[in-house]
């Protein structure tokens, strides 16, 4: 992708704020992102040599994000997490409106692999995979111990189910397996949890992995206050196992290691039934996110061939839900 959309002069003007002695920006490229959010990578010349930095931002034209928290809050969470021992990219600067680059923040580039398929399959990670589930448990315990910022949305189990059902009714397509899942979830609603900060999208694909394990936790945009077991269940959703179905935690590990890591750091015993409840809810949630892709399609969003293909992945979650509800 071209670098159009970022004013390089404004970026150059910020260089000293990003790193002491920072001068010129080069090799600017867009990594990913949709209409409302972009991730950019660039090099910065500093007295110590070239440093690679990342910019996560929403252009001024698209600052409204529906489901997600603000980028400022995301930066604040990443800083807090880093200080509490959660592997996190160092946040270098949060954009101010007068800087003219939209909303967002700069962070240090962290070397690592984020592609889930590579993490579960590549020989290079064969020795790393067995340590990841425990590390994820330890990291999640640290995240759940953080004091949530006051402006975070609150969403426990019952509220999450209501929101999903609203999105599902809006789509309006008959999906008998989803009906079954809604019935099961309401019948198996766990007792109220003590609510904590929840990452909201902690899964294989949002973790930067190196030979030594998890190097950075990314994508805090769905953070909220909720049941901490939501994060453990979401990490086990089959869609995030990238084909390695026999390894329930992210396609790389075992539940017992995840739970042991969590218990060692938090001192709180994990209730496997509660994690399982959140895994079922997570599978349904991913299924409904896929179907919402169809709704967007009908409303003639920007052309993207992957949209209809994501919509057609809802059937994956129907089989996963049946496997879970029939306890196969």
């Amino acid at each position: 992708m071209s670098a159009t959309g970022i004013d390089i002069e404004k970026l150059n003007a910020l260089a000293p704020k990003l790193t002491p002695g920072g001068r010129a920006v080069s090799d600017l490229k867009r990594l990913s992102g949709g209409a409302s959010q972009e991730t950019w990578s660039f090099k910065l010349a500093t007295p110590e040599g070239e440093a690679r930095l990342i910019l996560r931002r929403a252009p001024e034209s698209a600052t409204a994000r529906t489901l997600a928290i603000s980028l400022e809050t995301e930066a604040r969470l990443m800083r807090m997490a880093g200080e509490a021992g959660v592997p996190s990219p160092r946040v270098l600067h949060v954009l101010a409106p007068k800087e003219g680059l939209g909303a967002g923040f700069f962070m240090a580039h962290v070397e690592g692999e984020a592609l889930g398929g590579k993490i579960v399959r590549d020989a290079a990670f064969a020795d790393t995979r067995p340590m990841l589930a425990r590390q994820c448990g330890e990291i999640l315990a640290r995240i759940h111990a953080l004091a949530p910022p006051a402006d975070l949305p609150v969403s426990g189990a019952a509220h999450t189910i209501d929101e999903l059902e609203r999105a599902h009714r809006e789509e309006g397509w008959p999906r008998p397996v989803f009906e079954l899942a809604f019935r099961w979830l309401r019948a198996n609603l766990p007792a109220d949890a003590s609510l904590t900060l929840v990452h909201g999208d902690f899964r294989n694909g949002n973790l930067l992995i190196g030979a030594d394990g998890v190097r950075a936790v990314l994508d805090w945009e769905l953070a909220h206050v909720g049941d901490p077991m939501q994060d453990l269940g979401w990490l086990c959703v089959n869609s995030w196992r990238f084909g390695a179905i026999e390894k329930p935690v992210g396609g790389f590990g075992e539940r017992q290691d995840l739970f042991a890591g969590y218990e060692a750091v938090s001192g709180v015993a994990v209730d496997p039934a509660r994690v399982r409840f959140w895994e079922v809810l997570g599978v349904l949630r991913w299924g409904i996110i896929c179907t919402v892709s169809t709704t967007v399609l009908r409303e003639a969003g920007p052309f993207a061939i992957d949209r209809p293909m994501i919509a057609r992945r809802a059937s994956e979650t129907e089989l996963d839900l049946l496997d879970l509800l029939e306890a196969r």
């Binding site: 008998p176 397996v177 079954l180 019935r183 089959n238 196992r241 084909g243 390695a244 179905i245 057609r312 992945r313 059937s315 994956e316 129907e318 089989l319 996963d320 049946l322 496997d323 509800l325 029939e326």
Partner: peptide
């Protein structure tokens, strides 16, 4: 519900028929 004779088998057959079109490489 899932105890109803034939319901689970029907839903499973339907999910497999969808996946045969949508995503025959899916792990499950």
């Amino acid at each position: 519900d899932l105890q109803t004779p034939g319901l689970a088998a029907h839903l499973r057959a339907t999910a497999l028929e969808k996946l045969a079109v949508d995503q025959p490489n899916y792990s499950a």
